[in-house]
């Protein structure tokens, strides 16, 4: 059942022009733009080439929006539109539903990740070893999990009007502070400390390390895992009080008689 829900969730994302614009086309477009402007900057020894660094940053940037937009705004909308109510009257558990949503969030994060890398290789002549590609894409893909979880939290806590701007605002802020727009090395020291605590920076750092020929650090994995655990906890709390707050239960039944 979870699989069929998951499949439909993906189908509707791929038919959604807003997702295609923000979650696929935008990161590719930004990559081409930034790689053209800054890609040729001279690099110091040990630093990644601009075209590679920006590839990883934009791949993360696109993947994050895929994961976040498939969960947050959609879940909030479904809570108020009555689709969750409809599912609650069918043989589906809330858990199956949320697992399907999370899986769909991860699934629709993948196109941006892969396509930005393909664009980099094709248009900007980025060359990595085969093992680097094979490690970079799956590692960054798994690294989007905390963002899919954040979406679930947003979707469970916020109404349909607020969910999109809130998701987008968090996304932009975390991307900027996490060094996806400006190389983190160019941020001031206090801002670097902030960046190092953010999952956006850590997601990109997975890719930067692999692209530089190293293994990701334990700090990357630990920070991403910590955010994930925090969001799971929040989601469980929100779910506990969710049904009664949404118009699914008491309120609608009382007014509709």
């Amino acid at each position: 059942m979870t699989f069929h829900l998951f499949r439909l969730e993906c189908v509707r994302m791929l038919r959604d022009p807003r997702y295609l614009a923000l979650g696929v086309v935008t990161p590719i477009g930004f990559y081409l733009l930034f790689a053209t402007i800054f890609g040729g900057d001279p690099t110091r020894p040990g630093e990644l080439k601009g075209t590679v660094e920006i590839m990883v940053a934009m791949a993360a940037y696109g993947a994050i929006w895929g994961a976040l937009s498939a969960t947050g705004p959609r879940l909030a909308h479904e809570r108020s539109s009555g689709w969750l109510e409809q599912l609650r009257s069918m043989p589906v558990t809330v858990r199956q539903l949320l697992v399907a949503k999370l899986a769909a969030g991860l699934a629709v994060a993948l196109p941006a990740l892969v396509l930005v890398c393909v664009t980099a290789a094709a248009a900007k002549d980025v060359r990595l070893e085969a093992w680097q590609w094979a490690a970079l894409v799956p590692a960054m893909w798994l690294g989007t999990l905390p963002f899919a979880l954040l979406g679930v939290v947003v979707g469970l806590l916020v109404g349909p009007e607020a969910a999109f701007p809130l998701s987008y605002g968090l996304y932009m802020a975390a991307s900027a502070l996490g060094g996806l727009w400006v190389p983190p090395a160019r941020l001031s020291a206090p801002l670097q400390d902030v960046a190092h605590a953010l999952p956006t920076y850590r997601l990109a750092d997975l890719g930067w390390r692999i692209a530089a020929g190293h293994a990701p650090t334990w700090a990357d994995v630990a920070v991403l895992a910590a955010w994930s655990a925090g969001f799971v906890a929040l989601a469980v709390l929100a779910q506990g009080r969710g049904p009664r707050r949404a118009r699914t239960g008491a309120a609608s039944a009382a007014t509709a008689g």
Partner: peptide, 14 residues
């Protein structure tokens, strides 16, 4: 048992 509820909605996009 299956029900057609008054306030339920459907999944858009499919």
């Amino acid at each position: 048992i299956a029900a057609m509820l008054q306030d339920s909605g459907l999944m858009p996009g499919v």
